[in-house]
């Protein structure tokens, strides 16, 4: 732990992320104004003591919207990461531990899911079920599955060639126990690093999906939905797009810095590029 805290970028990134997360959590119990409170006469107000970030085109308090939107963004991205980890990591571990046809199947499956960018999944689900925040979660979660499956398999393959895995097999451990006892603990750090990266990508993707109307729906709000609401008036009232936009950028930067710091702290040789999930 002390070793981790000696990396300044990790500390900065994590603390900034935590600040946003706390703001989001606070919105669950308290916001300056109720977010669904529409007050047309008080619309387009500039920032003031009563409304720290002003009001939007429906007279809603921007500060309250940003707080609630931040929470939605975190929630969607976190659940999507949980889906990715929950399904992808077991798949990747199984591929590495069993090998042969299991591995072939997992690889083909990940190849296949890579052909479905989050937008396409969201389009298909929305066509069927109508728009909702769940769509965004499922669409981003589906995209996360092959990402984590690949990371887990790649990491586990590197570990699986080490002799202690063979020693475990000699001791009569089956594939499942090998994966649980020897492979998983040694790839945890990889998964945590990938998790922060997918968190930040998930927040961007949620914003994109909500912006085109395939994600969060009113009266709920999210940072992407705020941008959608501002779309019609942004040429006259750019402030309405600046506030949620800058919030997204800051959260994503915080997560990315934390991720980079974590990667450096855990293994400086782990640097690699990451494809953008947003689409």
């Amino acid at each position: 732990m002390k070793r981790l805290l000696s990396h300044p970028s990790l500390v900065i990134g994590l603390s900034a992320t935590l600040v946003f997360l706390v703001v989001g959590i606070v919105s669950l119990i308290w916001t300056p104004y109720p977010i669904e409170q529409i007050d047309i006469p008080r619309r387009f107000l500039a920032p003031s003591a009563a409304h720290w970030l002003g009001t939007d085109n429906l007279g809603r308090d921007m500060m309250s919207l940003v707080m609630a939107g931040t929470w939605t963004s975190f929630l969607v991205a976190a659940v999507a990461v949980a889906i990715g980890v929950g399904v992808g990591v077991p798949l990747g571990l199984a591929a590495a531990a069993w090998g042969g046809p299991v591995e072939w199947l997992v690889l083909r499956l990940t190849d296949f899911v890579f052909a479905f960018p989050a937008v396409i999944v969201a389009i298909l689900i929305t066509t069927l079920l109508g728009p909702s925040a769940i769509n965004a979660i499922v669409a981003i979660g589906v995209f996360n599955i092959p990402v984590f499956a690949r990371v887990a398999r790649g990491g586990a393959l590197g570990v699986a060639t080490l002799d202690f895995v063979a020693a475990g097999r000699l001791a009569g451990l089956g594939n499942a126990l090998i994966a649980w006892r020897h492979l998983l603990p040694n790839i945890m750090s990889l998964i945590i690093v990938q998790g922060t990266i997918q968190m930040s990508l998930g927040i961007l993707a949620e914003a994109g999906l909500s912006y085109i109307g395939l994600g969060t729906q009113p009266p709920e709000t999210s940072l992407g939905l705020m941008l959608r609401d501002a779309q019609g008036v942004f040429l006259i009232h750019p402030w309405l797009t600046l506030v949620p936009g800058i919030s997204i950028v800051l959260i994503v930067i915080a997560l990315n810095i934390a991720g980079d710091g974590l990667r450096d702290a855990i293994d400086p040789r782990l640097r690699q590029g990451n494809p953008n999930v947003l689409a």
Binding site: I248, V249, V252, N256, N276
Partner: peptide, 15 residues
């Protein structure tokens, strides 16, 4: 680049 990665493309379009 760190900032560029964090900017949603559609929002950048608005700017």
């Amino acid at each position: 680049a760190q900032t560029g990665v964090a900017i949603p493309n559609f929002w950048f379009g608005m700017l």
